[in-house]
Design a protein around this nucleic acid. Structure first.
Length: 261
DNA sequence: ATGTCAGGCGTAGCCTGA
């Protein structure tokens, strides 16, 4: 089973890229973030024509997440399902071939100390509570994947000094991610790239991609039995580059693919 | 910190978010 995650940064602005990438890569599951469309505007028919069922939790302008699957998704859950009144569409889950897939778009956090930053930390605690409530890490196969907006280690950052103590690298945020992971998840990407230096996001500003100034903030976290079946992990950097035959620019994120036996 | 994007509003260009 090949699973990909991709923050597409507007499914409208990258319609052709989405379909072209699906055709080329043919993952079994694709988790998307930052759709920036309501459910009705998601190209469900176009992806269906390529063989994918889509589970969509959309939102106008901001956020929006989805799960595309070649086998029918079951047991769909939308949002964190707690008693917090939260209009932001950042999480959807579905069971695919016995695996609980969770597509998540963690809050960016704006600036350290801001209201958005507090929301980010609280959201991550709510995510841990959600996992505790819904799953047993020893019994269930769970794959939490998406744009986590956290670079876990300094070697997940091309210029750690320049990004130090920002919302993507702050020790407080890394601790919050460790708390999510401690539910019983393992990073299934990093073991295939033990020396680090592999990135998934490059800022549009300052030509980050061209300068190699990236961070690894998109992740695949799996429960142990599933993690043990991981046999490879890659970033499709080609999708982050400008394309000559598509009249659409790249997202600021590249797709991250992990294959499970 | 910001040299770029995307969407909303509304039909030009500013504002927000990332």
């Amino acid at each position: 089973m090949r699973v990909a995650t991709w923050n597409i940064n507007s499914v409208k602005a990258r319609h052709e890229r989405l379909l072209g990438w699906l055709e080329r890569c043919r993952p079994d599951v694709l988790c998307l973030q930052e759709l920036k469309v309501v459910d009705e505007a998601f190209p469900s028919l176009a992806v269906k024509a390529l063989g994918y069922d889509a589970v969509v939790h959309g939102q106008k302008t901001y956020n929006g997440v989805a799960i595309l699957s070649r086998t029918p998704p079951e047991d769909v859950h939308v949002g964190l399902g707690d008693d917090v009144d939260d209009p932001q569409a950042r999480l959807v889950s579905a069971r695919v071939s016995g695996v609980h897939i969770v597509s998540a778009y963690f809050p960016n956090g704006g600036e350290v100390g801001s209201d958005k930053y507090a929301y980010k930390l609280r959201w991550m605690q709510r995510l841990r509570d959600y996992l505790d409530r819904r799953f047993d890490a020893r019994r269930d196969q769970v794959l939490l994947t998406g744009d986590f907006n956290v670079a876990p280690e300094d070697d997940d950052v091309a210029r750690p000094d320049a990004w130090a103590n920002g919302v993507l690298t702050h020790p407080e945020v890394r601790d919050a991610l460790e708390h999510v992971r401690a539910f019983g998840l393992q990073d299934t990407f990093r073991p295939f790239h033990p020396r680090g230096g592999v990135y998934t996001w490059w800022d549009y500003r300052g030509r980050g991609f061209e300068r190699g100034d990236g961070l690894r903030i998109d992740h695949h976290y799996a429960t142990p039995a599933l993690a043990a079946r991981a046999i490879g992990a890659t970033v499709d950097r080609r999708e982050r580059a400008p394309s000559e035959d598509i009249n659409e620019g790249p997202s600021d994120h590249a797709p991250v693919i992990v294959e499970y036996e």
